[in-house]
Amino acid sequence: MSSRDLVLGRLRAALAAGDPAPVEVPRDYRSEGTLDLDRLVERLTDYRAHVHRVPEAAVADTIADILPAGATIVVPPGLPPAWLPSTVTALVDEGLDNGRIGAADGVVTGAAVAVAETGTVVLDGSPDQGRRVLSLLPDRHVCVLRADQVVATVPQALARLSPHRPLTWISGPSATSDIELNRVEGVHGPRNLHIILLL
C-alpha cells in the first residue's frame, strides 16, 4: 500500500465513525469598504514606508530625490522608461544574475494591487514588476502605485489577484519582532521601502 493510500485511508476511517455534517461558512464579515487613500498613506507610514504623492509626470524627479546621483538600479523589463531619472543607471532585468541584482542600490517596480486598510502593496510578477528576486535583494525598493490599483480591504485585493501568478504581499520594509517583540525594521529584505502614489 502506498503512503498516499495509507494516509487517505486513515483519514476516511477517522471520519467514518461520526460522519461530520456539511458545514456552511458564514460570510457576513465585510467584503468591501470605502476607499480612502489617506488611510493607505497613514497605514504605510505607520509601518515605516516612505510615501510620496505626486502626479505621474513627476515620478522621475521623485526617484531622483530618493536615489543618490550615480546610483545603479535594477528595473523590470516592462517598467515605463519615463519613470526613470537620467541621474541613475538603470539595468533592465533580462536575466541579470543575483550578484548584480544584490549589488544594485535600488529597484523600481510597479504594483498589482494595494490594500488601504492594512498598508499593503502586492506584486504579481507582471512585466512592470518583474521576477520576485528583483524586489528582494536590493536594499531600497521604490514602488510606483496608481490610485486605481488601491482597494479598501483584503477580500477586494484577493478578488483582483490571480492565484496562478507568484504573489508577494509587502507591508512596510523587512522587519522582525524576534528581539523582545519590538518591531525592528531591516533584516533580510529591502530596508527602505518608498511608495510613489500617483495623483
Partner: peptide, 21 residues
Amino acid sequence: STGERMNPYTSMWTGVTPGDG
C-alpha cells in the same frame, strides 16, 4: 499573531513559474 494589520511579507506560489523562483 504578531499584532500587526499585516505581516511585512506574504509569499504565494502555485507550482513552478518558468523563469521566476
